[in-house]
Nucleic acid binder design. Structure first.
Length: 372
DNA sequence: AATACGGGGCG
DNA sequence: CGCCCAGTATT
């Protein structure tokens, strides 16, 4: 690694200012109530790519439902996925579930405390490994997330592009030089807390910053230029046709997605990608017939249109209402369920939006009936 | 090194 | 609305 200019940097004083600020100002968070490595682990997985405010209610519910490693290891995948519904990046919870079973079986239910072992767990990468080892076990391991890169890029004036995968290693080496041996847990948490509360991406509160005197970007007036972060590319757009289908008993047809890829193992209303050549409704009818042997009478017009933006793609879904005319052959992936049971299945947000729109339009039809 | 993988908040 | 945020696995 390039020799970073930290020779004239007062490490001890920086650690003290940072950690004492954290002791004064840290937020009370449910996963900070004790040092249970299981709780730290679950919280860190939830916090990947996800804001604290979003995570808090999920964490509480998750801990109530699965208070221990054993409880989670014994749960079914559907149950676990349901607890994660709406949080996104669902492979996180499938990996967590698998890893917890691994800990239960091979480590006697105790989260391992070495970098080698903890890094082998599914879903535990360099950041999460460092977070568990430092926060739960007090080991001086770096835990470099986006906050840490932003904070350190500013403090030490590091002009590395933090969007590049190679950047993380640079910052890990920096943390190894800076980390407090007395309190690695608070040191790492303080860097992240500072990034979340003070050293924010836009208009950071430098005047409130406990380590302003150590900050090169502040001194040099480059706060708004750091960190350097290149932009990603734009999303691919996908047009989909979906249908809320009722059988003769008013039950709703739902489909379980494949166990790999986007939204793996989540439930959805049947949907198919729009064709560029065939008329819109025909694609859906053909799909239902060819794949599920379902004959359906679809209404001519879609009742709602849903747009959902993912990181790497955009779904535009036209949603039709229809009745199933023949007998549905139910399988593990295909079910008809009563409307009041729909919400017991784990649906991705775009299909939660479909269900919401469906109920709204059903309601408005009723109002029309009464008026008419 | 590049891509797949959700969802929410803010202006 | 568009823009921004943020780790791991896979290829």
């Amino acid at each position: 690694m390039k020799n970073l200019p930290i020779d004239d940097f007062d490490i001890k004083s920086f650690q003290d200012d940072l950690i004492s600020w954290f002791e004064r100002e840290q937020r009370k968070l449910p996963w900070r109530e004790d040092r249970d490595p299981y709780k730290i682990w679950v919280s860190e997985i939830m916090l990947q790519q996800t804001r604290v405010d979003t995570v808090i209610p999920y964490f509480r519910r998750f801990m109530e439902k699965f208070p221990t490693i054993e409880a989670l290891a014994d749960a079914s995948e559907d149950e676990v996925l349901k607890a994660w519904e709406g949080l996104g990046y669902y492979s996180r919870v499938r990996n967590l579930h698998a890893a917890v079973k691994e800990v239960e079986e091979h480590y006697g239910g105790t989260v391992p405390d070495t970098p080698e072992e903890v890094s082998k767990l599914k879903g535990v990468g360099p950041y999460t490994a460092g977070a568990i080892l430092s926060i739960a076990y007090g080991l001086p391991e770096p835990a470099v997330d986006g906050n840490v890169m932003r904070v350190l890029a500013r403090i030490l004036s590091i002009w590395e592009d933090i969007a590049k995968p190679s950047a993380r290693k640079v910052f890990e080496e920096v943390v190894r030089k800076l980390i407090s041996r007395e309190n690695p847990s608070f040191f790492n948490q303080a860097l992240m807390e500072l990034g979340a509360l003070v050293c924010t991406p836009k208009s950071p509160s430098c005047l409130l910053c406990p380590v302003r005197e150590h900050c090169r970007a502040f001194r040099e007036g480059t706060i708004d230029e750091l960190p350097v972060k290149s932009k990603g590319k734009k999303q691919k757009q996908i047009r989909l046709q979906a249908a809320v289908l009722e059988d003769e008993d008013g039950r709703i047809l739902i489909h379980k997605r494949p166990d790999k890829g986007l939204l793996a193992n989540m439930w959805e209303f049947v949907q198919v990608e729009e064709s560029t050549v065939l008329p819109a409704r025909q694609v859906l009818k053909d799909y239902l017939g060819d794949v599920f042997k379902i004959e359906a009478a679809l209404e001519t017009e879609h009742f709602t249109e849903i747009r959902h933006v993912f990181t790497h793609l955009i779904w535009d879904i036209r949603v039709y209402h229809g009745k199933i005319l023949n007998q549905v052959q139910e399988t593990n992936e295909l079910k008809c369920v009563p409307p009041d049971e729909i919400e017991t299945f784990a649906f991705p947000v775009p299909h939660q939006k479909i269900w919401k729109a469906f109920r709204e339009q059903a309601k408005s039809e009723k109002v029309k009936d009464i008026k008419g």
